[in-house]
Nucleic acid binder design. Structure first.
Length: 597
RNA sequence: GGGGUCGUAGUUCAGUUUGGUUAGAACGCCGGCCUGUCACGCCGGAGGUCGCGAGUUCGAGUCUCGUCGGCCCCGCCA
């Protein structure tokens, strides 16, 4: 091993790409030491780079080299010059894609030693997520993470090529922009030159992309970072990436069609060809059948309305619920008739916690079994109408329709074993015809379900002021396997309608002008009909990679409490910087700081 | 903001139910042996503020309270 740290040769191959066809070739490899197996007169070194592993051999005839090989430790950075040689039949490793060959080393250069890593770099060795995030640079060396990040790159490239081919321009929009009143909490950036004033990081480039349409760019897209200062989940990060698109002279069908085509092209990356057109559900259908607006269609269970049947049944509980304006909803859980009493109690407990008065279950063995005492013919009637079969379990909730649907929707997923189904099943679905508004108990007012630039359905326009909750919108969501991939809408094209919407949202004239004046004015200068969609890029890659969390497809994610464990941010800053911004910190010692001071 | 769960060697965990001797294992690390290993094997060794802080107790990894941190969920996320 040479002591100098420069290597006179250039790399000829990546470790992971060597195969039988390279036998006899002189190669130069650079990589990290995955593992050293020193068996005395032979030393085996597994060398790893982004494309994979290859075994390097040094034998005792190479007196100088083997002495040095014995000094090598895991995660050292090594240059190896050697010859690819075939392995004898009984020495092959069928578990390794390079397992038919190995590299007989002639020269080695140690570029860099590694401190003992806090965890072994391997997909098989499980480090806690806390460790993985703190030492993210080591975690990213793992083959699975290298694969995910590569897939992410390929997916971004696919998107760009596809949309370029369809005539879309990728145009950037500002990160330092204006705070908007609606929607998620903004991340704010203090202005030094204008104390007391703030930029906001964009929750999405919504207004800018609509302005691009007004500006005549016709078709826009961006693979763009968005920021939302809200609490995190396995599929939610404070900064995330969207595939943001907008098209002029386009109707809903145009947007859906091009999105489907793009998704099909993305899924080529994992060798899956989703069937087109994707199935569609209206919001109403989705809620009634699945109790959610993002149904997982891999799960075939559907919620049934049994209100009619229920009204004919001799049961005080059901009667009381129906008379109070409630409905009777049923869910047949296939082959779960053998569920134990405690498991059923658990479901009941969950239903009560979620706001239902309770849950009724019915099983059919030689006779019907249920905590509900019913006449045989009533049991038979319910059983038949629900479509249940012998070994099934029928769950009933008699309650406000919304409550019953929501809870059965959750139980529907609780009783679904996603691992049991085909692992790589991909079930897309469009959910359309969302309500334009929903009631916010919190703010005690109407809020946009999608965003305030969403156009109402023409046929519902007359109800806008009188019955706003009944107005449907030209909005749509794309859902895959129960994950909301994204959503979009056909936008409002004229200032009058836009103003009417703001008014229904109870945005005063003054506030309207202050927050959106520039946009309302822009709408008056010749706005083409337009619409678009924004798709969660991280979630898309997560599905493509078969991961359960978007953290596994984001190089540097935050923890569920919005901390970066690697950089230890957010962090305090020099008080001078704070003064410059005209900001005063009130409650400084909250959270982590408190522990350290 | 709320609920659940976890925090013990460098790492992953056992031990906590029922408080009591010197806190264990595996991997990793250090030293030695080994010519076909690939989860190499064998021999030996080092390595612990039991997250942090209070409290209860003769005695706390174990019980109580608080706190910090990881993960999952509800609220929130147009």
């Amino acid at each position: 091993m040479e002591s100098n740290k420069t290597f006179k040769d250039r790399r000829t191959h990546y470790c992971g790409e060597l195969r039988r066809k390279h036998i006899g070739e002189k190669v130069v490899l650079f990589g990290w030491v995955n593992k050293v197996r020193d068996i005395g007169s032979l030393v085996f070194i597994d060398l790893r780079d982004r494309e994979g592993l290859v075994q390097v051999v040094v034998s005792k005839e190479q007196k100088q080299l083997i002495k040095q090989a014995k000094q090598i430790r895991m995660e050292n950075v090594l240059g190896v010059k050697g010859v690819v040689q075939s392995r004898k039949e009984d020495m092959k490793n069928p578990g390794l894609s390079t397992g038919d060959i190995e590299v007989q080393a002639d020269e080695m250069t140690l570029f860099s030693e590694s401190a003992t890593p806090p965890f072994v770099i391997s997909d098989d060795v499980k480090a806690t997520e806390e460790m993985r995030l703190k030492y993210r640079y080591l975690d990213l060396r793992k083959p699975s993470m290298q694969k995910n990040i590569k897939l992410r790159h390929k997916a971004a490239l696919k998107v760009r090529n596809f949309l370029d081919q369809k005539g879309f321009f990728e145009i950037e929009t500002p990160f330092l922009t204006k705070s908007t009143p609606e929607g998620a909490r903004d991340y704010l950036v203090a202005s030094r030159e204008y104390k007391g004033r703030f930029f906001a990081l964009p929750q999405s480039p919504q207004i800018f992309k609509q302005i691009f349409m007004i500006s005549g760019f016709d078709r826009y897209f961006q693979v763009v970072r968005c920021f939302r200062d809200e609490d995190l989940r396995a599929d939610r990060q404070p900064e995330f990436t969207q595939i943001d698109m907008e098209m002029s002279f386009a109707e809903q069908e145009d947007v859906l069609s091009i999105t489907e085509e793009m998704m099909v092209s993305l899924f080529e990356l994992i060798g899956i060809k989703p069937k087109r057109p994707f199935p569609r559900l209206t919001y109403k259908e989705s809620m009634e059948k699945y109790g959610t607006d993002r149904p997982d269609l891999r799960n075939e269970m559907e919620i049934k309305d049994l209100t009619d049947t229920g009204s004919k049944i001799d049961s005080n509980i059901i009667k009381a619920a129906l008379e109070a304006g409630g409905e009777l909803k049923g869910l047949v859980v296939p082959n779960k008739g053998d569920l134990s009493r405690s498991q059923l109690d658990k479901a009941g407990e969950k239903a009560r916690k979620a706001g239902a008065k309770g849950i009724i279950w019915i099983k059919k063995e030689d006779r019907f079994k249920s905590p509900l005492k019913l006449k045989l013919e009533d049991f038979a009637h319910l059983w038949k109408e629900s479509g249940a079969q012998q070994k099934d379990l029928l769950l009933l909730i008699a309650d406000k329709s919304e409550t019953a649907l929501r809870i059965l929707g959750e139980l529907r997923m609780d009783f679904y074993d996603s691992k049991k189904s085909e692992n790589r099943d991909i079930e897309f679905v469009w959910v359309t015809d969302f309500p334009l508004f929903e009631w916010s108990e919190d703010e005690n007012k109407l809020v946009s379900m999608h965003h305030p630039f969403t156009s109402p359905r023409k046929e519902d326009l007359s109800r806008l002021e009188k019955e706003p909750l009944k107005v449907r919108s030209n909005a749509y969501d794309l859902v895959v396997n129960g994950v909301e991939l994204g959503g979009g809408s056909i936008r409002i094209q004229d200032m009058e309608t836009q103003k009417r919407i703001f008014k229904v949202l109870d945005l005063g004239q003054e506030e309207m002008k202050k927050k959106f004046g520039f946009f309302l004015e822009a709408l008056t200068y010749g706005t083409p009909p337009h619409g678009g969609i924004a798709l969660g890029f991280d979630r898309t890659v997560m599905i493509l990679a078969g991961e359960q969390s978007i953290r596994d497809v984001i190089p540097f994610p935050k923890t569920t409490s919005s901390l970066c464990l690697m950089t230890e941010s957010p962090s305090e800053v020099d008080s001078k910087r704070i003064d410059e911004l005209g900001i005063k910190i009130i409650d400084k010692y909250k959270g982590r700081n408190h522990d350290e001071k």
